[in-house]
Design a protein around this nucleic acid. Structure first.
Length: 234
DNA sequence: GCGACAG
DNA sequence: ATCTTGTCGC
């Protein structure tokens, strides 16, 4: 596929054209290779700055013991645009990815996989660039229609775009809104659902992305983010 | 024109 | 995404 030298200067129209080219290489099929290491990734930012703190946490699977982590500080001016999140977050995530001594068998990203208008959500985009199996686990829906899953642990309801199943609304925890799971690359729908279920440990968010989120947040604060300082002088 | 809209 | 106090429900 033909990739832009840098994502910074892309116009939204060029980014969408890039997605159209990349989508031809998406491979949604069963992953036969056994999974022993899973990685979770996320980014933390200061609302009013362009600095991004990206991080990846590695876990043994299915035990989910943390065995490593890397982080990276990046800067981007590409804005958040629904549907084009990958162009804003992937560069920073790749920086953290390149620092990993050991690469995981599969990655879980905080966003959509193929549950995207061009089937090019963050997880799919990242999977294509790194050639690693990936799954998208989003806290909110971006594309597709679904019926509200029953209020029971692991109740689920498929996400449809026309007649195509592009993901699933999964009730990862009773009395909590569902999460939206979709395969990213080199893994199939059922496998994605099963893996995410195996990563739930009493919280709404699966452990890999939950820990990655906490990790990058700490990295940001430790790096000197003053935005959270309290005005307690008086 | 209006509503929807991952992080 | 980030910040934040109280509030509601299992």
């Amino acid at each position: 596929m033909l990739l832009p030298a840098n994502y910074e200067s892309l116009t939204p129209a060029q980014a969408i054209a890039c997605h159209q080219d990349m989508r031809r290489h998406i491979n949604i099929s069963h992953l036969d290779k056994p999974i022993s290491i899973i990685g979770g990734a996320d980014i933390s930012i200061n609302k009013h700055e362009e600095t991004q703190y990206a991080g990846i946490v590695l876990f043994t699977y299915p035990e989910l013991k943390i065995i490593g982590q890397t982080s990276a500080v990046w800067r981007t001016s590409f804005p958040y645009i629904p549907g084009l999140l990958a162009f804003r977050e992937v560069p920073a995530l790749l920086e953290a990815w390149n620092k990993l001594e050991i690469k995981p068998d599969l990655m879980i990203l905080d966003g959509q996989g193929i549950a995207h208008e061009q089937r090019m959500g963050l997880a799919t985009h990242f999977g294509l660039l790194t050639d690693v199996p990936s799954i998208g686990s989003a806290k909110n829906r971006l594309n597709g229609k679904y019926n509200e899953p029953a209020n029971e642990h692991f109740a689920q309801s498929y996400l449809y775009d026309q007649n195509e199943v592009i993901g699933v609304a999964l009730r990862s925890k009773k009395n909590c809104k569902p999460i939206f799971v979709s395969p990213g690359h080199k893994v199939d729908m059922q496998q994605s659902i099963d893996i995410i279920k195996n990563c739930i440990r009493g919280y709404r968010i699966p452990e890999p992305t939950r820990h990655a989120h906490n990790f990058v947040n700490q990295v940001r604060l430790a790096h000197g983010d003053k935005s959270n300082a309290q005005l307690s002088m008086f």
